[in-house]
Simulated scan of single mutants.
Amino acid sequence: MSLVRAGGAAIAVVVAVVLQVTVFSHLAWDGVVPNVALLVVVAAALVRGPQFGALVGFAAGVLVDLAPPADHLAGRWALALVIVGFMAGLVRQESRITVPMALGTVAAASFVGTSIFAISGLILDDGTVGVVEMLQVIGIGMVWDVALTPLLLPLTMALFRRIDPPRFATW
């Protein structure tokens, strides 16, 4: 990975997490904020593939795990976003990215990522949220993430295309 690509990804992840914990925290719906870091991970994976998506997912997940007001065991978001990044990168390999495909990928990534985070909390006994509350959080999270997709995903994907363009046409 080139230094330019790594630096651009690091900046995108830091900006996303800062926006998520500052600006978007004021827009919480039943305590659920949009997962801006997840959108950056999906964008990276859709542009660069599963390995890059997993790397960006790990970095974003660790940052989300450690950013205040984190109230959970560190590593849960890192695990979730690594899997999301890899999964979204596999979508890129299968077909040309269209708007419906991008929306579907974000919805699936939001469902998978939030579910992994929630299930890992049950396994680790980290919190007192029940299954019904978890399903509500997963649904609200999906709505938030899909709603923000038209605003954030094209910009982030354009950023990842601009920094260190691929040496061959990807689609």
Rank of each mutant, 00 (worst) to 15 (best):
D164F: 00
Q51K: 14
V18R: 14
T128W: 05
L81F: 12
I11P: 02
N35M: 09
S110W: 00
I119S: 08
L90Q: 08
E133F: 00
A158R: 15
M1F: 11
S95G: 02
G121H: 06
A44P: 07
P69H: 07
I83L: 15
L46N: 06
V32E: 10
D145H: 05
V4Y: 06
L79C: 01
S95F: 04
S110H: 01
I83P: 03
V4L: 15
V112H: 02
D65G: 04
A147M: 11
V15T: 11
A74C: 02
M142T: 11
G139Q: 09
L55E: 03
G49L: 06
V36N: 10
H26G: 14
T22M: 10
L103C: 10
V15F: 09
V137Y: 02
F168L: 09
L103D: 01
G127P: 10
L73M: 14
E94W: 01
V21P: 00
V41Y: 02
V33W: 12
D145S: 15
L152V: 14
L38V: 06
L103E: 03
G57E: 00
P150R: 14
V40K: 03
V112A: 12
G8V: 12
W171E: 12
W29S: 05
T170E: 08
L153Q: 01
G7S: 13
G139F: 09
P34Y: 03
L148D: 11
A88Y: 06
G89N: 03
V62C: 12
G49K: 03
A37C: 10
L159P: 05
R76M: 08
A88N: 04
W171T: 11
R92E: 05
P68R: 10
S120V: 10
S25E: 06
L90M: 09
A60M: 08
Q136K: 13
W171S: 13
D125H: 15
G130M: 09
G57Y: 00
L27S: 09
T156P: 04
P100V: 04
A107S: 07
V131D: 07
V146W: 02
Q20W: 07
S110T: 05
G31R: 07
F117H: 13
A60E: 01
T105I: 04
A70G: 14
L122A: 11
A118K: 01
P68W: 11
A169W: 05
D126Q: 11
V106L: 05
G121Y: 08
A43E: 11
V132A: 15
I119E: 00
M87G: 14
G8N: 12
P69E: 11
V32H: 14
A9C: 07
L39R: 08
F86V: 00
V23L: 15
G127R: 12
T170Y: 07
V15N: 02
V32I: 13
V32P: 03
A9T: 10
F111N: 00
V40A: 15
L38S: 05
W171D: 12
A118Y: 00
R167E: 12
A12R: 12
T149I: 01
A54K: 04
I123Y: 13
F58Y: 11
P100W: 03
G113C: 01
W29M: 09
T22C: 06
V146R: 05
M1T: 12
A60S: 14
S110E: 04
V17E: 08
L79A: 14
V146C: 03
A169N: 04
P69M: 02
